[in-house]
Write a protein that binds this DNA or RNA. Structure first.
Lengths: 218, 218
DNA sequence: AAAAACCCTGACCAGTTGGACAATTTTTCT
DNA sequence: AGAAAAATTGTCCAACTGGTCAGGGTTTTT
């Protein structure tokens, strides 16, 4: 993973230490996440990132050589989160427990980290120039693995047979939409911002439809 | 609708005629759709739009004063399509017919007009600077109306009671994902591009889960 | 045919952006 | 303390971008 996404290590021959370094890099990444999410890759400027991070623009370039390097690190962080944030799903699990848990986690992630979700979305809409390897390797294999789990569950009569890949596409879409399309969801609901209860209703509705729709007895 | 989205008519005091004008504007819009979808609003350049349209950059500015004017017209076209492309849903319809038809139309739209879908998506992720009025007025009312239809169906025992807004969020998300996240879907399926059959499977899966999940007897 | 309306483009420009760099200050290490 | 390493910043710049404009060409109308 790291090998694929991390900016070429050549950038940083000796991993310099330093409290300051860690703190500033973190500020820059946090600021960049905000700016990239709001303005997109091309719309983001290093000047704005610097300003939000509370640093001079030149200082940002001291830590990250290029704008793309910042972007790559933001993306790497998002992928990292993605890979570790969601509990695993195995054939031994009971789908009546594992699937609702997965949906809930995904939706709470949309609530807690909407910026990350949006950056992920725009990256893929752009044609995934940076994320392509991740999609074709890690994610592809992850889904292939889970597909086997779903088939097992279906064979054991624990759920209906469902095209497993598309099952995940539906869950991802239905949960991420609350981050990526938060503006639209809020406007349609007649709210300024989404509330806690909106997410609760979302969790209930998505869970209900998916569970019953796949014949998983709760 | 037009009133809200169309670029201010002041741009074009006398709607000039001309075969050439119509043809060139169409070329520009088509080119712009491609460029905006691939590069986002900020990433798009009028130079690239001109090149793809086969015109000189200055000529593009002759027809559209500003880049934003081009963008607005692209967006207006998308909204227009959105409003007229999908058959209506009324309380008199049978959900067993109307819902699958709606899902199918939405998914075929993702297949036929992925660029439009992606521009719509990035516009909303950006915070919908242009589309906000549409979301808060037309779309809000449209959903409010359909919410009443779903409640009617539920009262008549034709389907389970489901939070109607979230029902639509799920369908929109699950269908648009095949356009917006086409790259991801293809990568996970191990394909280069999505095939006809992928869309067929998607239609089946989404329809199956939604219908059964909402207790609509087919 | 000639005027009027419309179409086209090269040259140009002012503003912005990512990034380089040398000089200086601050922190860390010995 | 003093040297070495790391951090910081103002200044500068080349490349690019959206947009203007004057002049010339083409089509349509009368």
């Amino acid at each position: 993973m790291e090998r694929i996404l991390e900016a070429d290590d050549g950038d940083e021959p000796t991993p310099r230490g330093g409290r300051i370094r860690a703190r500033n890099k973190a500020h820059i990444i946090a600021a960049a996440e905000k700016v990239f999410a709001e303005r997109g890759y091309d719309g983001a400027t290093t000047a704005e990132i610097a300003e939000i991070a509370g640093l001079a623009k030149s200082n940002v370039h001291y830590y990250f050589g290029t704008k793309e390097a910042i972007y790559r690190e933001v993306i790497a962080g998002i992928v990292d989160l993605w890979l570790r944030a969601f509990g695993d799903i195995t054939a031994n699990d009971d789908p009546a427990v594992a699937i609702p848990a997965y949906i809930r986690q995904k939706l709470l992630y949309s609530r807690k980290r909407p910026l990350a979700s949006r950056i992920f979305a725009t990256e893929i809409i752009r044609g995934a120039p940076i994320l392509r390897p991740f999609l074709e390797l890690e994610l592809h294999d992850w889904v292939a693995d889970k597909a086997r789990v779903l088939e097992r569950w279906a064979a054991d009569g624990k759920m209906d047979p469902v095209a497993p890949h598309h099952f995940f596409f539906l869950i991802w879409a239905a949960t991420q939409t609350y981050a990526d399309f938060g503006t639209q969801v809020a406007a349609v609901l007649g709210r300024k911002r989404l509330k806690e209860e909106d997410f609760e209703t979302a969790i209930e509705t998505v869970t209900q439809i998916v569970m019953k729709g796949c014949g998983i007895r709760r």
